[in-house]
Design a protein around this nucleic acid. Sequence first.
DNA 1: TTTTGTAAGTAAGTGTTACTTACCAAATCG
DNA 2: CGATTTGGTAAGTAACACTTACTTACAAAA
Lengths: 197, 197
Amino acid sequence: MKHKGKTNPPGRIKIMRSFSALMVQKDFHSITTAQIAKNAQVTEGLIYKYFKDKKDLLYQVLNEHFFEFQAKIENRIANEKTYIEQLEVIIFSSLESYADNRIFSKILLLEVRNSLEFFNSCAYEMVRKYSRTILDIIEKGVEAGELRPDLDPYILRKVILGAIEHACLGEIIFGKELDIDDVATGISEIVFNGAKA
Amino acid sequence: MKHKGKTNPPGRIKIMRSFSALMVQKDFHSITTAQIAKNAQVTEGLIYKYFKDKKDLLYQVLNEHFFEFQAKIENRIANEKTYIEQLEVIIFSSLESYADNRIFSKILLLEVRNSLEFFNSCAYEMVRKYSRTILDIIEKGVEAGELRPDLDPYILRKVILGAIEHACLGEIIFGKELDIDDVATGISEIVFNGAKA
DNA sequence: TTTTGTAAGTAAGTGTTACTTACCAAATCG
DNA sequence: CGATTTGGTAAGTAACACTTACTTACAAAA
């Protein structure tokens, strides 16, 4: 039987919540469908009514969290005047969002990337949108003369995204605390003004 | 029966080769022990004579490739005079090594990080060593006045490592070609001179 | 030369796991 | 009302990672 997904029945919600809770404790592969079901107080079969497979459940949980992430950032960007300030907001807000939402971060940065299916999921569409936003700002920044004209916007994006993601890794993996203000301004300083004395 | 791992019997080599070959085609989890064994022309049981489990096989393959990676980089650093040049060499060589050795990159950047076991493996010890080398150079660079005195060495390291890793992702995941020279000089330009006009 | 120990490899399991099929009961709606 | 859809269950099944018990080969010690 196919579900069109228009409603959001309690079973479905319970499954997603159960899965999210388990993701805090262990990695995706060591979570079993039996555990998810038991924890959600439903039968294993119900998982497959709402989700194509275990990975689909992962992607949908990720997707749900993505809305928060993106909404918060886009609101904040609107308040900034210069393109550099906008990028600084992105760096700060991304770090903050990753820190506030460990399950989201863990899924996005550590769990989904190893399987190609993800890149056809709608969760990945949101990654691309976010990524595109950054590129747009960089390109406008170059046009406006805020950023160096010889700059490759794609490479600057790589540096910014890479720095953000790498900064979160220790936090996600080992549960280390991160001083977001320090790290955000540190990254911005290096990226915009350079590390050279 | 326990193996002390002093010798390197043909069966063990065949298993590792078989696994490496399969890793080119698919992701870790969709490779089965049956396939590994069949491909290596040994029985499934033999895998467990030489490797604790499937993940241990993954870590050991990673570890083997790590030697190449590290040896190449350390030789090259020795030839550079300034600390900034050393860091530039690291950026270039890392990109090059990742590009030359996709299985290694795929395992290190996409497969091992999601499970905590990895961080107790000896492969992770090598990551730390590599990471430590970068930090040392940065600290010396600050002392020598090449890099800004107010710089947080840990954050610069995050930016460099993050940029390198992120730059490789597209390549690893989608098999895109990467112009290493362009990307390496692009990253260096941004990191050392800044993106600001 | 026989004994002994052990490394290399095999064959045939076993318990779990993700996922399927068939069914039920209660809403929903033409 | 009767038909269909929705939310949910129970009992499977094939495939998987991993184990156990065994065989052969062979080198060093007795």
